[in-house]
Design a protein around this nucleic acid. Structure first.
Length: 950
RNA sequence: GCCGAAGUGGCGGAAUUGGUAGACGCGCUGGAUUCAAAAUCCAGUUUCCUCGGAAGUGCGGGUUCGAUUCCCGCCUUCGGUACCA
């Protein structure tokens, strides 16, 4: 009887569904274990082969925990709001709700074909009003709270207003963006609007001016992803930075806790480092510089107040508020030109700019320590949102300042003597201070303290802790997202909707184009925005990160209409024990989710301080992106495409890389990938705007309709993220059709370490397929008849089984699934050598294999005559005694090079082995016979012997 | 630019704590079976040479009896860089 996956896999999936094999209850005597996957965005391209990598790993782990007696919560859902569905709607007129529903349906089918042990009754999707009711509610709660730095937690904003009325804000230590100080009398004398404006600067959800990518031609705000090289990806129109008032979340209030609580969670060091660098806590001083002939002061943050005597100029961010006020008449034009240049660049482009750029604004600041005048510049390397958006430049001790000063011929004064520390780089805070008045002769750390003290005495500054972390821009001028539960009164004051008025359902429309001024399409729906009582609704919607910031809590109690989840459910499940997802989410999603969780914890609504106890980042399965080259200078009605080899040769040509759908390309991913005549025709059907183009190769040129015998246009292959926008998505469906789900699951695991990125390739899948056939064949005789023996297993058979139990168990625990698959292969190969068909061995092997290949093992389990499901069986117990050997083979090295082997009893002592080693043939050959002496013998019991000769 | 990761045979990868480099699989070569093919099975497969060795884990140094593993300096590729998710 042959192994035929198609005969068994669907049968068992139907059976599991019918029996509710993977249902999980909130009432259980078993210990709980929560295994969570990062839920997918249901893209129109379907589930690709990269998604399952993490899902298979977490499914194996969930099944492993279940076999070990845990009550395992293992849910799945969809991150269903987002930009791509809206862009698709703009192009096709298909409503995002429709396309998203269709895509989710396709994803469910694809996911269920992978045999995951999800409890689908707990499915959550973020665009469901029953779900986003609570997303809106959490936002409303954030709006209703401020962060009290004395209590170290969020408190109701009403308590803050009461304190202002009694004490003003001088005694309040709270996270805020309000600059001034006021007394109780001042507060009580303010108008309602003024008070509301002040409170807004303290709320955890607040409004302020922020910058967006604005495309005038498209009349819309663009995501960073939609901007390439300063122009819109669609159409290639110019994009500038435009100021807009919108919602923000004050995540910076939690910066310290987000940083220090990393210590209590089991995440990789690299991920913790990424998060900690993203938070970017640095201690230093804020210093105020007077401006010559002006009342204005420029505030800077510096980690090196000890170098203040070396300040020879200042640089403001081009967007800094003071730029307009301080620029002198003579410099106005140059400054305006420079700002226009900067506005056309994204932040990433600005940071990546290798050339130093800047402009003098004509004004001078006064160095508070030296009273000398220093010129004020603007430069793109200073970012508005980091620190105060202004720096004091110390070209002697900062690399970027140094490059800037060198290029523009600005003065450089040495203030730190590093001659005592020849190893130190500019970045190291070491050295002796020189040319610096009261600090001369001090070591750097001492001087930093002294400079802060002096600044405080002089009233020109103070110690300050700065974070790179910025508050989260939470407004999108879009349609497909959660509406804000916010209405504005006649004074423009924001009010939140009460929980009884939620969800505020996203109104229906067929017109997804932005409204005037780049506002959300909702702004056009006046019936919805204008309320009968004269109030108006907020028309921005929330970003996709909103729904993904708390979904893990909803799975605990997904149907609840009274709360985001019941306290009983939350107290039972507590937190996520294992979270598996891509490293591309290392900052944004994980940071926001931790922030929301901590806020809910402050409110006493979740028992844990951190949401994700252990986190494993799966590497990305990459796709191949194929390009041909478009000659940018060719006329619009006769575009010229050239092959990759021509483009490589014509180095002076001006070519744009145009991605080609991988389906059109022959031999994709290899150096010889090419477009055939048929491939080009498919490309032209797909991109009709190029129908008149010519396609040039070294051997000749092709144009649509032309007759050619053999035509191969070489394409350029690059490896990169699998994404609909790169036209390189590969679905698992065809692989599953051919090899079966169990094989696909094991092959994805066999590809390599789960955390490592790798390009997709089906080359080795036959090996895994052969393994499953061999495993199946263990249960059958030569004639294909079911044939098992009930005899007691031999010592060798037990050793093979228990070697596998040990290896597989240890490797599951350390998430090394590729080596598990290899251990299974070794085990079946060895059992085949012994022609083992003992029930006692094969039954245990079947349970061990069940998490990896759930279908074939269930079929065998059934044929073994066992009751129930193999997925509810008891995990095999490892017995050390079966692995014991009488003797061990030692490698014998001479001077670190392996020269031979020698066998010793496994209980031989180090001294015994050392004595015996001297007499070994190999050792004599390489020492005495070579005219050398034995200098030293190193024995590591059970491992190796190394003899040093010389 | 900044932050993080990776680099080992023709290919995917293994080596868990500094201790036999290349497990397992693909591919390839030869053989068996077959009228033939597929499938299956067996053997071989890092490179180089004088068959005894020599070299070898991106590159250049270092520590050590011993380094894929630790340290210093580079190179290349991938991910993130705050509005793709």
């Amino acid at each position: 009887m042959d192994y035929t996956p198609s005969d068994i896999e669907q049968k068992w999936r139907d059976h599991w569904k019918k029996e509710g094999t993977y249902k999980v209850s909130n009432d259980s005597d078993k210990p709980k274990y929560y295994v969570l996957d990062m839920f997918p965005y249901p893209s129109g391209a379907g589930l690709h082969v990269g998604h399952p990598l993490g899902y298979i790993a977490s499914d194996i782990y969930a099944r492993y925990k279940r076999l070990n007696g845990f009550n395992v919560l293992h849910p799945m859902g969809f991150d269903a709001f987002g930009l791509p569905a809206e862009e698709y709607a703009l192009q096709t007129g298909i409503h995002p709700a429709t396309s998203t529903t269709d895509n989710m349906e396709r994803y469910r089918e694809q996911l269920s074909a992978l045999g995951f042990s999800f409890d689908w009754d707990r499915e959550v999707y973020t665009c469901n009003p029953k779900y986003y009711k609570w997303t809106q509610w959490i936002f409303a709660e954030l709006f209703g709270h401020y962060y009290d730095q004395t209590a170290k937690k969020a408190l109701p904003i009403s308590e803050l207003a009461d304190r202002f009325a009694k004490e003003g804000n001088k005694t309040v230590k709270a996270a805020n963006s309000y600059k001034g100080k006021f007394s109780a009398d001042d507060w009580n004398g303010m108008t309602k609007v003024e008070q509301a404006d002040v409170l807004m600067e303290y709320r955890l959800a607040y409004r302020k001016i922020g910058y967006v990518n604005w495309c005038e031609e498209l009349g819309t705000v663009l995501a960073n992803d939609q901007v390439k090289d300063g122009v819109s990806e669609r159409g290639g129109y110019p994009v500038i930075q435009k100021a807009m008032k919108q919602w923000y979340l004050r995540i910076t209030a939690y910066a310290d806790r987000l940083l220090y609580d990393l210590a209590e969670i089991d995440w990789s060091d690299s991920l913790k480092t990424i998060q900690s660098n993203w938070i970017g806590r640095s201690e230093g001083a804020s210093l105020f510089f007077d401006v010559k002939d002006s009342d204005e002061k420029i505030e800077v943050f510096t980690t090196r107040p000890d170098t203040t005597f070396g300040v020879t100029y200042m640089v403001l961010a081009p967007e800094h508020d003071l730029v307009a006020k301080l620029t002198t008449e003579g410099q106005k034009q140059k400054v305006a030109d420079y700002i226009a240049y900067v506005n056309a660049k994204s932040e990433v482009d600005r940071m990546a700019e290798k050339e130093v750029t800047g402009e003098f604004i004509g004004a001078y600041a006064i160095n508070p320590f030296t009273n000398t005048e220093v010129p004020i510049w603007i430069g793109e390397y200073v970012l508005k949102d980091y620190g105060t958006g202004a720096i004091m430049a110390v070209p002697s001790d900062d690399e970027r300042d140094n490059r800037f000063a060198t290029k523009f011929g600005l003065e450089i004064i040495d203030v730190v003597d590093k001659s005592k520390y020849p190893e130190a780089t500019l970045k190291d805070k070491v050295g002796v201070i020189i040319n610096s008045g009261f600090m001369n002769g001090m070591e750097v750390p001492e001087a930093i303290t002294a400079a802060c003290k002096k600044a405080e005495e002089m009233g020109v500054g103070e110690m300050h802790i700065n974070y790179k972390l910025r508050d989260a821009n939470f407004g999108r001028q879009r349609y497909w997202g959660e509406p804000f539960p916010i209405i504005y009164d006649a004074d423009g004051l924001a009010h939140v909707l009460k929980v009884d008025d939620l969800p505020l359902v996203l109104p229906d429309t067929q017109d997804f184009k932005p409204a005037k001024g780049g506002r959300s399409p909702l702004a056009r729906m006046e019936d919805w925005t204008n309320l009968p009582n004269g109030m108006t609704r907020e028309t921005d919607v929330m970003p996709a990160v909103a729904g993904s910031s708390w979904y893990f809590l909803r799975y605990m109690d997904p149907g609840n209409d009274e709360a985001f989840a019941s306290q009983k459910a939350v107290n039972y499940w507590q937190d996520v024990d294992l979270y598996v997802g891509g490293s591309e989410h290392a900052v944004a999603h994980l940071m926001y989710a931790r922030f929301w969780h901590k806020f809910l914890h402050d409110k006493g609504l979740v028992p844990t301080n951190e949401p994700f106890k252990k986190l494993v980042n799966q590497g990305m399965i990459q796709g191949v992106i194929e390009f041909i080259f478009l000659d940018k200078n060719s006329p619009q009605d006769a575009r010229r495409f050239v092959s990759a080899d021509i483009a490589a040769k014509e180095t002076d040509g001006d070519f744009a890389k145009i991605p080609v759908h991988v389906d059109f390309v022959s031999n994709y991913g290899s150096p010889k990938s090419y477009l055939s005549k048929e491939g080009i025709e498919k490309f032209l059907d797909w991109r009709p705007e190029y129908k008149n183009a010519t396609f040039e190769t070294i051997d000749g040129t092709y144009q649509k309709g032309q007759e050619v015998d053999k035509f191969e246009m070489l394409t350029l292959s690059e490896v990169g993220k699998m994404s609909k926008s790169k036209f390189n998505v590969i679905n698992p469906d065809s692989v599953i059709d051919r090899y079966g789900t169990d094989c696909f699951r094991m092959y994805e695991m066999f590809l390599g370490p789960i955390e490592q990125a790798k390009p997709w390739d089906t080359k080795g899948i036959d090996g895994v397929s052969k393994f499953l056939k061999k495993y199946w064949a263990l249960f059958f005789d030569k004639n294909g008849n079911w044939s098992l023996s009930d005899d007691a297993p031999t010592k060798d058979e037990l050793k093979i089984l228990h070697t596998a139990i040990k290896k597989v168990t240890e490797d599951i625990e350390r998430f090394s699934f590729n080596t598990c698959v290899s251990a299974f292969m070794v085990c079946t190969n060895d059992l085949r050598k012994w022609r083992c068909n003992k029930r006692a061995i094969l039954k245990e092997l079947t349970i061990l294999l069940a998490p990896f290949a759930p279908h074939v093992t269930e079929e065998i389990w059934n044929r073994l005559g066992e009751s129930g499901s193999v997925h509810h069986a008891a995990y095999p117990i490892f017995e050390e005694s079966h692995l014991k050997e009488d003797s061990i083979e030692y490698p014998v090295s001479i001077n670190g090079k392996k020269r031979g082997m020698a066998e010793f009893p496994s209980d031989a002592s180090r001294d015994d082995i050392m004595a015996a080693a001297k007499e070994l043939e190999v050792v004599k050959k390489w020492s005495v016979e070579d005219g050398k002496q034995i200098r030293k013998i190193i024995v590591v019991p059970g491992r190796m012997i190394n003899v040093v000769v010389g």
